[in-house]
């Protein structure tokens, strides 16, 4: 494709969110994804997946964490146009879609009341999910390391550690 055609044809990207493919057109019109739109904005405002929270919009609090191709990423620091062909899992994608069965981590967070205000919780659960997917039986210090970029001002940390370790023992 030469430069000229590129400018004339609206560019399309496809992102796969919670196993559903979405074709998005890049552009400046209200129905398009802007070139400067972050993945957090696209998830929340274009796709209506508001379970992903934005705490600082500066990449420093971890609230907006989602899983992209198996790894936790900060969706407020990721541009949507960079996500063509990527598989993204958000908090909405953890439940079994048909049965509604919760992910063991979600259940463990409920059982341990591993939240207070709950705003940081989706990000914490996604980071923990990515950790357990890559390291099913982490040690306490590994859980702390994996969550060290997650800000929780209420101090749910101790309950979160219990919840994640408990889910990992169950083979979550």
């Amino acid at each position: 494709m030469d430069k000229k055609t590129k400018q004339e044809d609206p560019q399309e990207i496809e992102i796969i969110v919670n196993n559903i493919p979405y074709s998005l057109t890049i552009g400046i019109h209200p129905d398009q994804v802007g070139p400067s739109d972050t993945l957090a904005k696209t998830l929340r405002e274009t796709l209506g997946l508001t379970g992903t929270k934005v705490g600082c919009d500066q990449g420093s609090c971890g609230a907006c964490t989602v899983i992209m191709d198996g790894l936790p990423i900060l969706s407020c620091l990721t541009l949507t146009i960079e996500c063509d062909g990527r598989h993204i899992t958000t908090i909405e994608g953890l439940q079994e879609p048909k049965t509604g069965k919760l992910d063991p981590l979600q259940q463990s967070f409920i059982d341990h009341t591993a939240f207070q205000c709950g705003f940081c919780t989706p990000g914490m659960i996604m980071a923990s999910r990515a950790l357990l997917d890559n390291n099913p039986s982490p040690k306490t210090h590994e859980v702390k390391e994996a969550l060290s970029g997650h800000f929780c001002r209420c101090i749910s940390h101790y309950h979160v550690l219990d919840a994640v370790l408990s889910a990992s023992k169950k083979g979550g």
Partner: peptide, 21 residues
């Protein structure tokens, strides 16, 4: 006794609605 928070399911599934939602 420890009992699940009434809003626990909403919080862990991302369905709890905050002002920017």
């Amino acid at each position: 006794k420890p009992t699940p928070r009434k809003d626990a399911l909403d919080i862990v599934t991302g369905r709890a609605r905050y002002i920017d939602d």
